[in-house]
Structures are given as structure tokens and as C-alpha cells.
Write a protein that binds this DNA or RNA. Structure first.
Lengths: 200, 200
DNA sequence: ACCTGAACACCGTTCAAGT
DNA sequence: ACCTGAACACCGTTCAAGT
């Protein structure tokens, strides 16, 4: 039987780690996370095999958050606006969480929990892109996977900036999205990545 | 007087660090870099105040490489093609160097040597964009700073992928560049960042 | 069954001892 | 003037001792 204080500590750790990773990136120390949660640092490794797995758990939560938004938007009446909103939410999540981009790059292959979330994300992105394409809102050589990969683009662009520039990512997201419109489309030099390359 | 072995060791260290950072990202240990250079690790800190400064020195070298390419392209007969080539070279540098994006984000404020290189980069990007805009090759609400910030976009997109996918960044660079064309331009929701925000 | 902090192998950085 | 490795304060991770 799992004890009551154990489930409580696990929740405290998840909350503390989520906040610390978001504020300071994935390099925050386990000691800091443990003390914010009010537990000994040994407790962290009783609940999570490794720091990487703790990060993966939280990263997966953010992905599921985006999946949920995507599934809701898949019912929308305006498929073009729905895709833009999906990308807006995805980019906003990254803009709020300093560890998101780092985790996306660092956890690309391993961690089963991340893999399934990524697959679900690719699924919903496929639906959103297919609908937008059918409505003529986006070029027809763009795939769901393309959109998922492009999510990092706008938020990453802003990272080279020194000061805080809240919302500047919206500028680059708008530019990226304009690149998905049929009007500006030129033939692409490289074929889209396959699902297998993404799932790993 | 600086001794002959000192200038030699400095060069060995720069070469070793450049290779290690490019292959393994900015988290490689100083010990590893020192041993690749064939010197004791104490020697590293005689030549560079800190690991961050060593990284900055190398990052600055990559920026200058891009600046040089940009200055050459500023003379080109086809301003639109020149801008695309500039962005291609910039993205390719990042695709070959795992530490570049990390450095761009981590060294955003500090390090004088990086600041001047960034300024020179912004200068040449301004020229290239201005010429492309005058030729009608890009939308007229895009700035040189926008282009510099967007350089990270395509190479970052590919980082979420598990396997090696050489050249896939060309796909996303093409999409990003299509977003800069006048044909697809929609009004942008946020004004361009200022030079001061970039220089820090 | 779970919590905890001391112990371990690492890391970046410093510095006394060498040449 | 410079090189070097032992020494220091950290980090992630393990584990014996507690409850």
C-alpha cells in the first residue's frame, strides 16, 4: 500500500519542480526543488528514478495540456483560425516555461511517457492541419509534424534577447504562420520528416 | 612577454573546445576539453576566466564567420537571393554546432566580445534586409533584427527530432523564409524589437 | 513503506608548488 | 610567465539508518 504522506509528497514535488523548471530552466538543482517542496532531497529519488525522469514527467504534462487544447480546437468551425490558435497556445506554453525547449531537445529519444504524449500531439496536429488544408488556409505540402516542430521556432527566436520582452514571440509566430499560407508557398527543398523519426 | 608555449596552448584549447562544444553541446566538461587539447585543466583557467567566457569566445567566432558572409553577400546582384543565402549560412552554422543555440540563449546579456559581434551581425542584417525590401523580395515590416532572431528558428525546430536528419533544417528555413515574402504578409501583432533590447 | 541526511563520484574553479 | 594537479564547494545519485 502506498502511504498517504507519499502521495502528498509526490504532489508537492511535482508542483515545486514544475515551478522551478519553468522559472529557472532545467538546470535548477534537486536540492532547491526538494527544499521548495519541503522534503529531503533523498525523497526526490524515491519518487523519480532520475532528475531526467522528473523533467520528463513535467514535460509530458505540458504536452498533454497542448493535446487537450488541440482536441477542443479540432471541433472549431474555422479550421484556419483553429490551427493558428493551436500554435499560439503551444508557443505560449514554451514562452512561460524556460525548461520546455531544453526538455524537447534533451528528451527526444528516451522516456516512454514523453513518447506517447508526443504521439498524441502529432495525431491532433495532423487533424488540425488536414482540416486547415482542406479549407485552403494553409499550403498543401505542410504536415502535422511540421507544425509540431515549428512550435519551438517562435519562442526560441526570442531567447537570444537580453531583456524581458513579453509577447514578442507573437510577432515571430505570426511570421512563421504567414509562411504556412498558400500565397507565399514555394516548393520545399526537403521532404517532411516521417512519424518514425519523431517518435524515435 | 607572453611565452611561445602559452600562445600554442591557447590555440590548442580553442580548437579542442570548438570541436567539443560543436559535437556535444555546452555541457562538456572542462576536463574533457583540456585532455583533448593535451594540457592540464588548470591551464584552461589561465587562458579563460571562466567556462562561460571560453564559450563566449567561440560563439563570437561563429558570429563573425556569419558577419563575414553577410558582408560579402551585401554586394550581391540579387538582394532577395542574398538574404536567403545569409539565412542559410547562419542556420547551417547552428545545425553543425550543438552549442550555438544554447550559447545564444545563455550569453544574451553579458560578455563584451559577444556584444560587439552581435552588433556587427545586426548591422549587416539591416543592410541585407533593406536591400531585399527595396527589391520587393521581402515584406516591408520585417527588420534586420527580426532576421537575426529568426536564424535560430529552423535549426531549433529540428532539435525535437530523435534521429539524425541531416538537412531537414532546410525545409523549415524555406518555410520561415516564405513567411518573409510580401505575398503572405498579414499585419504583425507586435512591433519589432529595438536595437537596445538586442545589444543588452 | 517511506523519509532523511551523510557519503560518493563528479563538476567548475582556485591556488600552492613546480619549471 | 606559465603549467600542473591537489583541494574546495558544488552537483546528481545512492544507501544505511531511522520512523
Amino acid at each position: 500500500m502506498t502511504r498517504a504522506d507519499a502521495v502528498r509528497n509526490r504532489r508537492l514535488l511535482m508542483d515545486a519542480a514544475t515551478a522551478e523548471f519553468a522559472e529557472n530552466g532545467m538546470d535548477v538543482s534537486i536540492t532547491r526543488i526538494a527544499s521548495r517542496a519541503g522534503v529531503g532531497k533523498g525523497t526526490v529519488f524515491r519518487h523519480f528514478d532520475t532528475k531526467e525522469q522528473l523533467l520528463a514527467e513535467i514535460f509530458s504534462d505540458r504536452l498533454e495540456e497542448l493535446v487537450a487544447a488541440g482536441e477542443r480546437l479540432a471541433e472549431s468551425a474555422d479550421p484556419g483560425a483553429a490551427l493558428l490558435e493551436f500554435m499560439t497556445i503551444g508557443t505560449e506554453i514554451q514562452a512561460r516555461d524556460r525548461s520546455f525547449c531544453q526538455a524537447a531537445a534533451a528528451l527526444s529519444r528516451c522516456e516512454a511517457t514523453v513518447r506517447t504524449s508526443r504521439e498524441r500531439l502529432a495525431d491532433v496536429a495532423d487533424v488540425l492541419v488536414e482540416r486547415a488544408r482542406a479549407a485552403g488556409a494553409v499550403r498543401d505540402d505542410v504536415t502535422g509534424l511540421d507544425v509540431v516542430l515549428l512550435l519551438s521556432a517562435a519562442s526560441q527566436a526570442v531567447l537570444s534577447l537580453s531583456g524581458e520582452t513579453p509577447g514578442l514571440w507573437r510577432r515571430y509566430l505570426a511570421m512563421v504562420f504567414d509562411g504556412l499560407r498558400p500565397e507565399a508557398a514555394r516548393p520545399l527543398p526537403v521532404p517532411a520528416p516521417t512519424r518514425a523519426e519523431f517518435t524515435g
